[in-house]
Amino acid sequence: MNQKAILYLALLAFGIAVPFMFPAYKLQISIMWILVVLSLTWDVQGGQMGYNTFGNIMFFGLGMYICSSFQIGIFFPLAEWTASGGEKTFIHTPTQFFQGFFIGIIFAGIIPALVAAIIGYGILGLRGHYFAICTLGLAIAAGELAGGIELVGAGQGMTSPPWPKNIGDTELRSEFFYYICFVLMISTFLFLRWAYTTRFGLVLNAIRDNEDKAEAMGINTMRYKISGWVVSAFFVGIAGGLMGNMIGYIEPVETAFAGRTFGVFMVVMAILGGKGTLWGPVIGAIAFHIFKEGFWTFFLGWQYVALGALIVIVVIFFPEGIMGWLREKYPDRFGEVIDEEDRKAQVELK
């Protein structure tokens, strides 16, 4: 068996064993998998395609609201649930809970993906900083609008359906969500790993390096840009739906369209790990999460000062991230130089 397969299997085994090895950290590690999903999907635009987005958090919030709204709405009147104290009037049976959850999760993926497809043509026609600022505007507007919609609790937010009482304890609840998060993370990773080997991956890189050239070579770049955004929106939407269920409470700007937290995190994680690589965003997310959990308590009250400083430091001194640094250090490990002939060629070039 080759090294890579062993590595993958070991990681898989670790992922499966976590709830038994570190029962106290189940929730923490579930959130870490969500962060990996956010980081990986941000990198589809920000890293692979060179379109730095602040807007992917919009799909997160959308997924969160949609998932819970479906979970509640298919069994009970949503407006009464979100009216103050209303959620106490209705109780999901276990069957209802799981049916609702799976339907909700599916729509939490599909609807943001559709939204991305619809607005993609307009938004992805912008480039560079115009795109970045436009997506920032979209994400903030989405949060502000959600905070004004009565049906989903307006600024008060809404609760997602609580775990049904008569089936197991909170341990079971967190194990259930843990595995769903883990499966989501694995699916996202494997999907992207495959997608980057297809035409999709190369075209995204071509767009990043020179979009005009790609068009001049006959590539319909818009089609690929939208496809990429749809993919990101799909996985981010599901992640949002899951997150809403895990927290149990949806607040428009703090948890759903959480630009100040998850929205920034996804950018920092991907850059920290190494933009435009498959493993970079994964490593970045894990490193960031550990940093954050380790220091968040330490910096109590100073979290955002620490986060702001971290962003500045990473962006200025470490823009290529961990993977970029490794690539600088061990270029041959990244297939840049393989045989002697090529090594000579490179020397000649310099």
């Binding site: 297809t198 035409r199 190369l202 020179n210 590539i219």
Partner: peptide, 27 residues
């Protein structure tokens, strides 16, 4: 104009005309 961060082979591979070119051939 070339794709600077891709290697030469990938620059070439992405320049070939795809046999099918529609929404379903993205992947």
């Amino acid at each position: 104009r070339i794709y600077g961060k891709l290697n030469c082979i990938d620059n070439m591979r992405i320049s070939a005309k795809p046999s099918r070119d529609n929404l379903f051939s993205v992947f």
